[in-house]
Design a binder for these strands. Sequence first.
DNA 1: GCCGTTGTTCATTTATTCTTGAACTCCGAT
DNA 2: ATCGGAGTTCAAGAATAAATGAACAACGGC
Lengths: 199, 199
Amino acid sequence: MRAAPIPAFSPGVTRIQAEFVRECVEVFADAVQLFGVPRSVGQIYGLLYSSPLPLSFSDIVEQLRISKGSASQGLQLLRELGAIHISDSKLNAPLDKRDARQAGGAPGSAIHTAEAGRREYFEPELSLRKLLGAILSERMAPLASTSVNRLTRLRELADQVGDGNDFYLDRVKQLNTWRKRLKAALPVLGALLGSKGGR
Amino acid sequence: MRAAPIPAFSPGVTRIQAEFVRECVEVFADAVQLFGVPRSVGQIYGLLYSSPLPLSFSDIVEQLRISKGSASQGLQLLRELGAIHISDSKLNAPLDKRDARQAGGAPGSAIHTAEAGRREYFEPELSLRKLLGAILSERMAPLASTSVNRLTRLRELADQVGDGNDFYLDRVKQLNTWRKRLKAALPVLGALLGSKGGR
DNA sequence: GCCGTTGTTCATTTATTCTTGAACTCCGAT
DNA sequence: ATCGGAGTTCAAGAATAAATGAACAACGGC
């Protein structure tokens, strides 16, 4: 088990809000692990999900207390999956945020002076369909790419066995059926998750 | 990367059959990894899947060249998942197998004299629905059990924030929607995999 | 152009998971 | 009862995956 990830306290954020963030971070950290995605990546998504304003790279590093390396790789993966995107309001976001911070906060550990440079801000993608669709197809890709070749090879071998009964051919046929069903089921799943009918 | 798992040669089995087995073992070893199931467990299933006759514990250990510990744990998991079951013909299976082996084989490395004791024989489950259903629900269980409590907690926190807009409440609502959709989608997926319509 | 800052890459360290092997229990046969 | 093989458990080792941090590259402002 790992030490509970406790986001750093940011100025201008109430204790309740911080608690909300922490809970979200953990929820997503746990959830993504079920899909084989590293915990820290879920943390990043959870943080963005619970933030009213887009966050920058360094916000994430500071609040999650993770290394720049982890943050960079995690953000990269999330972008590849389409789970987050760069805020289009490159200009507004930082300004809004500075206001928000100044508004409520104990300015003790000062936000560094210059909020300058090529800083980018990230927002979470909120479509469940896109989120899961990307993860699933990413994980299915390697299987799909090799499975056809392998089944062909198995079929050849089964033909050569030539024992009395059709055991080997039957098994190959069944594998093929399974593959087809899986292939057919995935799009349907996507449709279900995208629909509004889940009540 | 790991050394290719090469099943040991068994008497009474042609080279082609051995090749078929090896290919199956690898196919399932790779496939199960996508669902977070250990490779060796997939190997065991693949071996059983490609065997015309039920296999015993020691058959598995010998042919896959894995330790008794791995075999035991792997078989246990597969049984929990309902992916294999103990051959009901506790009496027939071993007899059949001895016949089969004697029939074709170079009896050089003799099958040990006494086929005795409480030896059990395993067969693979062939229903895709059962196979995947068990894996999926096993992996979803931890999420499902905690998610309701966590969402309740998040809702409480969101109520307490009370900033001008409904940002936090909206996020909680969306999480709830996602949860419901996932819950609704899983049974449908099961139905799809069990149907005959996948052609 | 330079300079300070932002973000990336990658070898190393750290943490987690898987496998092994040996001691042990269980069961059936004698 | 006891003997021998069948199967399980678990601590220790090996293999794999993830996180770190420091060196590096990219960008914007001046």
